[in-house]
Each structure stands twice: as structure tokens, then as C-alpha cells.
Nucleic acid binder design. Structure first.
Length: 591
RNA sequence: GGUCCGGUAGCUCAGUUGGAUAGAGCAUCAGCCUUCUAAGCUGAGGGUCAUUGGUUCGAAUCCAAUCCGGAUCACCA
């Protein structure tokens, strides 16, 4: 409809003023509540181009549209704004045309492949709130992109090697006493996380001992037995020492089991997992190529660098003097392997914004190496999650564990539901499923409703709220509609609909919201922003609840009215249900 | 110090390429369940859009400066 109005506006300017403009320069908004109309054309820019007074040209354009564009019932001009009213027919037809389409708003595959990386945990501790935001954003953006017609490959990268991994290995070796997830009753990732903490504590104790003897912090780090032992272990790992490697395999195996369990609970999935231990040596050959091409240069000590000062950045090391690779080198190599595995037009990295600089460098280097995928590299940069008390600090034990958090959400859902006492018809298994869906609905929505780019505050008390701007509010609206449809049975007869149905304001307002759904999905995909969708779904649910409150569906005056409202309700439920699905949230039929 | 990101109601957040009187939720206060699920609906109060200047018909939005907060600038990952 908006496209139609734009097209007519373009031809109006051509016919009346002999001016050629692009449709994109025309601004058309939804008409605000306080004015009469459905869409509003902002005519100031047009007046400037045409060299006429805004109200004059608005009047002219209004008449022109009335004459040439179908579906317009009337218009009015307020200052430089042309408010256009659309015939009720248009909305009614729209509803009839799309309400039974289970794919309304979704675009069929355009055979354009994009890859998206998310997750990216280290294998030395369990997942926490920060990972959760990463995973929820990555998963949701993937689903939104699919809905917008892309073929999406979801990949995960395990940072499974390096000093940090050796730390928990060493602590386990020294203090572990052959403990296993089975013997300790701990999830694998939590068990390994425990030994990571043991290492940190023990190291701090040793450092304190040395500094109390008068050594500086740095000197103490040079001497502390634990720090030395870790370095030695890392060296052995790199040399392929079988004892170290088998310990590493065993412990990482436990971690993966733990992660798999958590991923399943979160409800995310991956098409492929990459392991840093497989890829950390890659990139070296690319550096060799780059050296030959003159993209990189070698310093006197043999280290290899790239000069990015012309691009406003610094000189960046890509290979150490001893020939070993650094983080950025691995990433170059990994990108190359991924592109070979899955040729795609975009590679999206869901990584926190503390690595903005790193990804600028990565993209620049790939561009300078003339890699075909370089232009498609996109850093989906999201903000940190803070607590009301400030930043999460592992040292102060304020890190919110993902598994604990999910359990607490389920628990809260159970309590809230029990307080309302609506679950008489549920058996135990059904209750369990419901509490899970509601708890996760609350948690996921709470995190996804915020623009990914922005830093956010996670307030535990607020996150378990089930009222207002929350997941359960939308789930509730959906369940309400399902209840209506159940009671109506199969009596829904859409065919009886006539186009002169007297559309109520609340019905029209609701249809207008539904009308926006495809646009919202495209916008959310274009901006990689689930929050746009989350905000939309909330507004839609709110609008429905208003409608539901004011107008009776099952007890409507006329049969036609009842059928119409059932159809409208069913359509709303479908959009809510599928919209939530894109956020990774399941909408129960009853609650 | 250089670079990047942010500052909107008491709190958490929207505000779609610059558009009409800046919006939600929570919290506070006042109403609505003998009729479709009250996890709901209606209403009230609450704002110097960090500050100052600029651009123009029009600025929370764009530009500049300043203040405040955060990130980053590792031969860590």
C-alpha cells in the first residue's frame, strides 16, 4: 500500500510539476492516533522540490490520489501533512487474503547463503549470562534471516586450547583425585569451571607469598610454581605430549557434554562446530602469501606485521618472531576454512563489542588479501550485560550462571502459575513443559527486547516479572486466543464474509498492526535486531488485548461479526506464535 | 592520551533513513471480574531528550565543542 502511494506521488509530481523524484525520498508514516487517517504523507520535501506551498500541494496531491489510486476513501490536510484514509475494503480483503496463510510475513528461500557464528565459549568454565545474550541474539537473528528468505548456516567455535584451558587442567591434575562428573555429581562444564577457580585461588595464594617477601607482582608471576607449570603444560600440549593431550581430551569431553545439555535447554542449534585446536595453525600460510604480495612486512626480529595506520588503526602483529600465530592469524585462517566449507555472501560474527577493534582489523586484512568473502564479513556487535550492582566479576562471584538462571526461571514460572491456580487440567508432565516454556519465554524476551548494540542491565527481580512488557504477556495473549478458538470449535466460516462489513476502530487498528508484520521481519533482518520484532509483538498483543476487552467475540451481536472476529483472532494468534518462534520462544495453547 | 560506543520519566527500555503534542513497561495512585483466561483492561501523576552552539520549514534524531559513563589501543584469547 505504501509503495502504491509512493508510486502515485511520483507520477503526481511528474504530471503536475514536471519534476522527477525517487520514491525513496518520500516519507510516509502511520497516521498518529489523534488525527483522522491511516497513512500520512509528509509533503514539506515535495513542496520544496515543486516550489509550491505545502498546504497547496498537499491538497492537490490528495485530490490526485483520490482520483488515481484505488482504495482511498478520503484525505485531510493538516499543516504540511497529508492524511490519507484507506477504504475498509482494503483491510477486510487483506485479512481474508492472508489470515489462513501459515507463512504470512515469511519470504521463501532466495538461495542466498549467509553464515552466522554465535556461542563461542571457552572450554574452561560453564556458560554465563553474557553467553546467554550472545546465544539468544545469534539464534534469533538466524531465524529472522531465514524468515526473510536467506539460507542460514549456524556455526559455533570452541576456544578449546590455550593457557586458560591448561589452568583448569593443571589444577585438576594436582588436586582432582580422579574426580569425574559421575563421581562428583556435577555437570562436566561446572566441574572443569570449579578447577579453574581452584587454580586461580591457588595462584593468588602463591603470589601473595612472594610479594610478602618483597617481590613485585611481575616478579612473583615469573617465579610462582603454578604459573611456570601452566606454561610448561601449554608447551607440552603444543608438542603433542600424549599425557597432556589425553587429559585435555577427557576434560574437554566432559565440558562438551555439559554444553550440549545447556544448549538443548536454551533451545539453540548449530550446523557445525569449529574447534580452535583444529584451526589455530591455519592462517600461517595466508600470512606467507600476504608477505609475498607485500600486504605484510617482516621486522628485524622476524615477526610479521601489517601496517593499518592509513586506515586509522595501528600496526598489528600477525605472526610472532618465533613463527607462532596470534589470535587474529587464527581468525584469518578460520574464515578461509569456513568459506571453503560453506561459500556464502556474508559471514556474521556474533561477538561482544569489546572486540570491535579486532573485527575491524580482521575485515581490513581479509580485504587487503583480496579474499572473496572479505566484503561480507560483518561483526554483529552486542553490548555487555551488567547487573544492577555493575559489571559481572568472576573474582567477586557475581557471575550469573546460565544453568542456574534457567532453573530459577522455571521455578518462578511454577510459583506464579500456582498462585493463579489455573492449571487444574494439567498433568505433571504438561506442567513441567509449561513452566519451562514460560520461564524461558520470560528470560529470552527480557534479553531480546533490548537493542543488541546497546549495553543492558540484567535486573534479576525484573526479569522474572510476568506482567507488562514481557514474554509471558504475549504468551498469555496467544493462549487466550487459542481458548477462544477451541470454544468456537470448527464453526468458523470465513466464506460468509462480505466486504461491506462495518469495521470497528479496534478491529481496524489490529489489522493495521498485522499488516506490518512482513515489514517488521525485513527490518529486523536488515538490522540484525530481534528487539524490533520483540517490540512489535508486544504492541500487537497489547492491541489485541484492548480489542478483546472491548469487543466480544463468541457473544458478538451478529454471526458475521463473530466469524470476522474469530478470523481476526486466529490471524493474530498465528503472527504472535510465529513471531515468538523467531525469538526462540514457544507460545503454549493453554496457561 | 588516540579511536569507537553510549547518555531519553524514579528504574528498565522504545523512538524505523530529520516530521505533528517525545512513548511503553515497572514502581506510585484511582477504577474494572455473576458474560470469551484479571499473567488482562481503563485512567492519573511523572521529561530542560547530559550541556551549549550550529544546520532548516521542522532536531531526541544530523554537525561541532564540552561534561559524564563504558570499551579498546597486548608477541592474551
Amino acid at each position: 500500500m505504501i509503495e502504491l502511494l509512493k508510486a502515485h506521488t511520483v507520477s503526481f509530481l511528474k504530471d503536475t510539476y514536471q519534476k522527477e523524484i525517487f520514491a525513496t525520498t518520500i516519507t510516509i508514516n502511520k497516521t498518529p492516533e489523534d488525527f483522522v487517517g491511516d497513512f500520512t504523507i509528509v509533503v514539506f520535501p515535495l513542496a520544496k522540490i515543486a516550489g509550491a506551498r505545502p498546504d497547496t500541494i498537499a491538497e492537490q496531491l490528495g485530490n490526485y490520489l483520490l482520483k488515481h489510486a484505488t482504495g482511498i476513501s478520503q484525505f485531510n490536510v493538516v499543516k504540511g501533512f497529508l492524511n490519507i484514509s484507506i477504504h475498509n475494503n482494503y483491510w477486510i480483503h487483506f485479512l481474508q487474503q492472508h489470515s489462513n496463510n501459515p507463512l504470512f510475513g515469511f519470504t521463501a528461500s532466495q538461495h542466498r547463503r549467509v553464515m552466522i557464528e554465535y556461542g563461542g565459549p571457552n572450554t574452561n568454565k560453564p556458560l554465563h549470562l553474557g553467553h546467554l545474550r550472545n546465544i539468544l541474539i545469534g539464534y534469533s537473528v538466524s531465524e529472522i534471516l531465514k524468515a526473510a528468505g536467506y539460507d542460514v548456516i549456524k556455526v559455533n567455535i570452541y576456544n578449546d586450547r590455550g593457557v586458560h584451558i591448561c589452568k583448569s587442567m593443571l589444577a585438576y591434575q594436582l588436586f582432582g583425585k580422579q574426580e569425574t562428573p559421575q563421581s562428583s555429581g556435577m555437570k562436566g562444564d561446572h566441574l572443569i569451571g570449579h578447577y579453574y577457580v581452584v587454580y586461580e585461588n591457588e595462584l593468588r595464594r602463591q603470589l601473595a607469598e612472594y610479594t610478602s617477601q618483597g617481590l613485585t607482582e611481575d616478579e612473583a608471576k615469573q617465579k610462582a610454581p603454578l604459573a611456570l607449570a601452566v606454561k610448561e603444560m601449554l608447551l607440552k600440549w603444543e608438542q603433542g605430549d600424549e599425557v597432556v593431550r589425553s587429559l585435555w581430551r577427557k576434560m574437554n569431553g566432559w565440558v562438551y557434554e555439559g554444553f550440549d545439555e545447556t544448549f538443548a535447554r536454551i533451545g539453540c542449534d548449530f550446523d557445525k562446530h569449529y574447534y580452535e585446536s583444529d584451526t589455530y595453525l591455519l592462517g600461517k600460510t595466508l600470512v606467507e602469501e600476504g608477505l609475498a604480495q607485500g600486504v605484510f612486512f617482516k621486522k628485524a626480529d622476524g615477526s610479521v606485521w601489517i601496517d593499518l595506520t592509513a586506515d586509522g588503526l595501528d600496526e598489528k602483529l600477525v605472526l610472532r618472531a618465533d613463527g607462532t600465530s596470534v589470535y587474529i592469524t587464527q581468525d584469518i585462517g578460520t574464515a578461509d576454512v569456513r568459506y571453503r566449507d560453506f561459500p556464502c555472501e556474508r559471514m556474521i560474527y556474533t561477538v561482544a563489542n569489546e572486540q570491535d577493534y579486532h573485527f575491524k582489523v580482521l575485515k581490513l586484512i581479509c580485504q587487503k588479501l583480496n579474499k572473496p568473502y572479505a566484503g561480507g564479513i560483518h561483526h554483529l556487535s552486542y553490548g555487555m550485560v551488567d547487573l544492577p550492582s555493575g559489571r559481572m566479576k568472576s573474582r567477586e562471584g557475581t557471575v550469573v550462571d546460565a544453568d542456574d538462571l534457567i532453573s530459577e526461571m522455571e521455578q518462578t514460572a511454577a510459583e506464579q502459575s500456582a498462585a493463579l491456580g489455573k492449571l487444574d487440567q494439567f498433568n505433571e508432565e504438561e506442567k513441567k513443559v509449561l513452566f519451562y516454556n514460560l520461564g524461558m519465554g520470560a528470560l529470552k524476551f527480557y534479553i531480546l527486547r533490548v537493542d543488541p548494540k546497546k549495553r543492558m542491565v540484567f535486573n534479576p527481580e525484573e526479569s522474572i516479572d510476568f506482567h507488562g512488557f514481557t514474554g509471558p504477556f504475549i504468551q498469555y495473549t496467544h493462549a487466550r486466543i487459542c481458548s477462544l478458538l477451541r470454544k468456537a470449535g470448527n464453526a468458523v466460516e470465513y466464506s460468509s464474509m462480505t466486504s461491506d462489513y462495518p469495521l470497528h476502530d479496534l478491529e481496524k487498528a489490529l489489522i493495521r498492526y498485522l499488516h506490518e508484520f512482513p515489514h517488521v521481519i525485513h527490518e529486523a533482518a536488515a538490522q540484525f535486531s530481534p528487539s524490533l520484532l520483540a517490540n512489535y509483538l508486544f504492541a500487537l498483543a497489547k492491541e489485541y488485548n484492548q480489542f478483546y476487552q472491548e469487543l466480544s467475540v463468541l457473544n458478538a451481536q451478529a454471526e458475521e461479526e463473530k466469524q470476522f472476529r474469530l478470523q481476526l483472532s486466529g490471524f493474530t494468534a498465528s503472527v504472535l506464535n510465529r513471531g515468538l518462534k523467531l525469538l526462540g520462544i514457544i507460545a503454549p495453547d493453554r496457561m
